[in-house]
C-alpha cells in the first residue's frame, strides 16, 4: 500500500458516499445514468467474487470489496425502487452492447491465464474503463449538471488518476508492472480529461457545469 493508492481508494469511497448523499437529500436520481451504475455493479461483482476463491489479501481489501459490491447494489435499489419516478431512461440512451461487447472480446484475447476466473477479472478491468461513458454521454446530452453530480464524477476521476502514480511507485519500489490494469487505467482516466477541464475551470469557481454549445 502506498499513499497514492490509499488516497485513490478513499476518493473512490468518497465518490460513492457523495452519490448516495445526493440521491437521498434531493430524493432524486436526476442526472445520474442508471446504465453506468448498473455497469459498476457488474464490474464489482465480476472482480470481487475472488473473495470466494482467491487467497486472502488483507482485512482492508476484503472490507473495501464488500463495501463496493454492497453500495453499488444499494444505488441500483435507490434508482430502480425507492426513487424510481425520478429516474428518466429517455436520456440514458448509450448502447450497452458497445461497452459489453468489446470488454468481452478484449478479456478473451488479453488476460493473464485463459481460465474462467482470470477472463472474468480482465473483463471487469476493461468494463470499468468504459463504464463511465453512459454517464458522460448523458452529461453531454443535457449540457449541464448539478454541482453535486460533478463532485461525484470528480471524486471518481481522481480515484483513477491517483492509481497512475501508484503504478509508477510500484514499478520503482517492487518492479511490478501490470499491463492490463495500466493500459485500461490510462484509457479510463483519459475519458475524464474534458470533464476535469470544465470542472476545474468552472465548477470549482462556483459556476454551473455547462458544456460549451
Amino acid at each position: 500500500m502506498n499513499i497514492f493508492r490509499l488516497f485513490g481508494d478513499l476518493s473512490h469511497l468518497a465518490s460513492i458516499l457523495i452519490l448516495i448523499h445526493k440521491i437521498q437529500t434531493s430524493r432524486s436520481c436526476r442526472g445520474i445514468s442508471f446504465k453506468t451504475q448498473a455497469l459498476y455493479v457488474a464490474v464489482f461483482v465480476t472482480r470481487y467474487l475472488d473473495l470466494l476463491y482467491a487467497e486472502h489479501v488483507s482485512i482492508y481489501n476484503t472490507f473495501m470489496k464488500l463495501f463496493f459490491i454492497g453500495s453499488s447494489c444499494y444505488i441500483l435499489y435507490l434508482m430502480k425502487v425507492r426513487f424510481r419516478p425520478t429516474q428518466d431512461p429517455s436520456i440514458d440512451t448509450f448502447r450497452l452492447e458497445y461497452l459489453l461487447g468489446p470488454s468481452v472480446v478484449l478479456a478473451l484475447i488479453f488476460n493473464y491465464t485463459f481460465s474462467f476466473t482470470e477472463v472474468l477479472w480482465a473483463f471487469s478491468i476493461y468494463l470499468e474503463a468504459l463504464a463511465i461513458l453512459p454517464q458522460l454521454f448523458m452529461l453531454q446530452r443535457t449540457g449541464e449538471a448539478e454541482a453535486i453530480t460533478t463532485h461525484y464524477l470528480a471524486a471518481l476521476g481522481a480515484y483513477r488518476a491517483l492509481y497512475i502514480p501508484n503504478w509508477l511507485y510500484r514499478y520503482f519500489s517492487e518492479g511490478t508492472v501490470d499491463p492490463i490494469a495500466v493500459v485500461a487505467g490510462i484509457v479510463q482516466t483519459g475519458l475524464y480529461v474534458d470533464f476535469f477541464y470544465i470542472y476545474f475551470t468552472k465548477v470549482l469557481r462556483g459556476q454551473k457545469f455547462e458544456l460549451p454549445a
Binding site: 493508492r5 476466473t117 482470470e118 503504478w167 501490470d178
Partner: peptide, 10 residues
C-alpha cells in the same frame, strides 16, 4: 494460475 501482478488492488 498466473494472476495479475496487481490483483491485490481494488
Amino acid at each position: 494460475n498466473k494472476r495479475s501482478p496487481t490483483h491485490d488492488e481494488l
